[in-house]
């Protein structure tokens, strides 16, 4: 069992086994990277993406092992299968990187994002916002007579859907954490 709690060899996908043909179709993958939490390590990861022209759709990072000074970086990226394989290999050769896991390729995973949304308005719109928030199980974490701050957790798609609904109701600001993800099962 690795430090990322993902069983090694749980998948056929590895640096050795690539798909039989190189497809041009872009795929979105969630990649978990366990790194030594040393100065500049995030810059190395981001620099790799910008320097080699890869996409970052979302990125979250925080220290997850305070004793061992290990941070977990979760990156959602889009590219052709060849590019995704390159990204993983390139991440793997950064010296302070301990482990790289492609959660999308290695089986199913749970992905969650947290967002805070500020919605301003009065009367009907305000009531409607509160009603929709209830449906989405968003919580009110701040309120004035003319505004709410909602907290919502869920998949990025759920956050998108909620934000789309709030827009006509007076959405003025949104802050999102980006995706955190874990593989399902043992």
């Amino acid at each position: 069992m690795s430090a990322l709690q993902i069983k090694k060899g749980s998948t056929k996908h590895s640096a050795y086994n690539l798909r039989s043909t190189f497809s041009d179709v872009e795929e979105t993958h969630t990649i978990a990277v366990l790194v030594e939490n040393e100065p500049g390590v995030l810059a190395r990861v981001i620099g790799l993406f910008s320097g080699r022209g890869y996409n970052i759709d979302s990125l979250t990072v925080a220290e997850v092992d305070h004793k061992g000074h290990l941070s977990r970086i979760t990156i959602v990226t889009t590219g052709t299968p060849q590019v995704i394989e390159q990204i993983k290999a390139q991440l793997g050769r950064i010296v302070p990187v301990h482990e790289v896991h492609d959660l999308t390729a290695e089986g199913s995973s749970v992905e969650r994002e947290l967002a805070l949304l500020k919605v301003t308005g009065v009367s009907d719109k305000r009531v409607e916002a509160l009603r929709l928030a209830d449906i989405f199980r968003a919580q009110v974490v701040d309120s004035t007579l003319e505004s709410f701050v909602f907290q919502i957790t869920g998949t990025p798609e759920k956050v998108d859907a909620f934000a789309d609904l709030m827009r006509p109701l007076g959405l003025t600001e949104i802050a999102r954490t980006g995706v955190a993800a874990l593989a399902r099962g043992l």
């Binding site: 640096a15 050795y16 690539l18 190189f22 060849q82 394989e85 390159q86 290999a89 390139q90 793997g92 050769r93």
Partner: peptide, 14 residues
């Protein structure tokens, strides 16, 4: 270097 494998040319025996 694993990142050299399949970077530009797909190989059968990496």
């Amino acid at each position: 270097d694993p990142s050299s494998i399949n970077k530009v040319i797909r190989v059968d025996m990496p």
